[in-house]
Amino acid sequence: MSSRTVLIGYNVRGRRVVAALRECGRTTGFTVVDSDPQRAEQAVMAGVHAVVGPCWRLRTLWLAGAHIADHIVVAVPDDDMAQRIISAVRSINDDATIITVARSSEQHQMVEYLGADHVVNVSQVDEWVPDAERPHDGGKAFADLEWTVMERAVTHDEIGCSPLDCRHQVLAVVRRGRRFWAEDPAVAVLRGEDRLLVVSPGSPKG
């Protein structure tokens, strides 16, 4: 049985998520939700089913199939809106895996409290990017940083480790063509032939 994914927010970050999921073979059961008709039209032109409407409204989320989705990615740039969306999603779907981005430790704690399962914290960018200068402003300089999901091979020092202990934030493990979420007991220990789906920061907006 194929899984169903709903992406909320078809901005630059959202488009990168779509591209990454397509590269990993996730081309079915995929829906975009955006309040901007033009962005929704861009999704349709790219061959992705889209629903237009306020992303936090239950009716919009229901039309997008969020109530039966397996995975929901919240890619809106506004933290308050992300909180509202996550709360609405969790109220109609207890089982979906929700992924989102937070820009502060307070936001991180709040979205986890509201029901997010995987939270990418912008203030932790220095921990994920090799040789990156450590931020001195709590991550504010990275407020507009775009994020992407990429697939990579398991490194030699990661073999035998849990995907949850890797240096980069691992969302899923691809093993023999099948994807498992990082917390799945089936992939408790990484193998050399595994591929990792990780969150990676892109370039700040110019």
Rank of each mutant, 00 (worst) to 15 (best):
R39I: 02
L171Y: 01
D165C: 09
A116R: 02
S3T: 08
A186E: 09
T97E: 05
V6C: 06
S162G: 12
L190P: 12
I68D: 15
Q38V: 01
Y113N: 10
E151A: 04
G14E: 07
G29P: 09
R191L: 08
T27I: 03
E183P: 04
A66I: 07
M150E: 03
P135C: 08
A20M: 10
H156V: 04
Y10P: 09
A64Q: 09
W147F: 09
A50S: 15
I86L: 04
G206H: 07
P201G: 00
Q107N: 15
H136M: 11
P54E: 10
M81E: 07
Q109R: 15
D184V: 02
D34L: 03
I98V: 14
Q124G: 06
L171G: 00
Q83E: 15
A69F: 02
E133I: 14
Q169N: 02
V74D: 09
A102D: 07
R59I: 13
H168L: 11
A143P: 04
S123F: 00
C161L: 05
G177S: 04
C166W: 04
Y113V: 06
D165I: 04
S162P: 13
A75P: 13
E133H: 11
R59F: 08
D36M: 01
V44E: 15
I98E: 03
I86E: 05
D131H: 15
R16F: 04
N11H: 10
R179D: 01
H136K: 14
V198R: 00
R167S: 11
H136C: 12
W128N: 05
R26S: 01
V187R: 00
A50Y: 08
Q124S: 13
G14K: 06
E41N: 12
R59T: 14
S123T: 03
A132E: 11
G14M: 10
A46R: 13
Y113D: 08
A75I: 07
R152N: 04
E112V: 02
L63E: 12
V74G: 04
E151K: 06
R134C: 12
L197R: 00
R22G: 14
R175I: 04
